[in-house]
């Protein structure tokens, strides 16, 4: 029943089925393998697979890992591998979940630094984060760049090129740097004219018609909006 090809030397104390499963798992390296695929590849019965996996886990030869692409499916990986980025989702994922709390804390720290500095480069922010030891792990420059980039997307800060003058005097001309956009800081996010009326925010605008079930004269969003404002 076991496969003829055995890339690994025999692990002592393993039965054939365990060998077969271990090999199937190892073959996938850092991508892990789904239980169903183990069954398909080894052609073993459910019962044998389950039992063997248990035994391999106990011997600390394999581990269970979460696959971000499909959290519901159980995946296994040989102990010597570290899950690939595709599996874990990358640095910002913990157990298959995006670590939003960490991201938010980092954003706030960057923002605080930026408020004090007005303008800052990526290196500047990175150095500050390291120096203040606000995070317990070794944060990479790449990670800080990702945080800053997401703050740009949030429209909290803007990316600019240094002019070498004024606030930029300490930054070489033409270098990419970040600053809090002047207008936004003082006034908060500007809401467009369309977005400030019910129809702009309305998820049902595509089915709303003058004479229809959903229509402006019977619209509850309007009723609510006009009421709230008084």
């Amino acid at each position: 029943m076991s496969k003829r090809k055995r890339p690994e030397k025999d692990q002592p104390g393993l039965v054939d089925s365990e060998h077969a499963i271990l090999n199937a798992i190892k073959a996938r390296k850092d991508n892990g393998i789904w239980v169903r695929d183990i069954k398909l590849e080894t052609k073993l019965t459910d019962h044998v697979v389950t039992k063997s996996i248990k035994s391999l886990l106990a011997k600390n030869l394999i581990k269970e890992v979460v696959n971000i692409q499909n959290k519901g499916k159980k995946h296994y990986m040989a102990t010597e591998f570290k899950p690939s980025k595709e599996m874990t989702g990358g640095d910002w994922y913990v157990d298959g979940n995006l670590d939003k709390e960490l991201i938010n804390v980092l954003k706030q720290l960057c923002m605080r630094f930026m408020r004090a500095q007005k303008v800052a480069t990526l290196e500047g922010v990175h150095t500050d984060l390291k120096k203040n030891r606000v995070v317990t792990f070794e944060i990479s420059s790449q990670q800080v760049a990702e945080i800053l980039n997401s703050m740009v997307l949030d429209n909290d800060i803007i990316e600019v090129k240094s002019t070498g003058l004024g606030d930029y005097h300490s930054i070489p001309i033409g270098a990419t740097c970040y600053r809090i956009a002047s207008g936004i800081a003082a006034r908060g996010l500007r809401v467009g004219a369309f977005a400030s009326i019910p129809c702009g925010a309305c998820p049902r605008i595509s089915i709303c018609a003058p004479v229809g079930v959903i229509s402006p004269s019977t619209c509850v969003y309007y009723t609510k909006w006009l009421d709230i404002d008084f």
Binding site: N155, L189, R190, V191, G192, A193, F194, A195, G200, A201, C202, P203
Partner: peptide, 10 residues
Amino acid sequence: EEVESVIMKR
């Protein structure tokens, strides 16, 4: 900005 703020609201 106009479009983005619609996206944000909706």
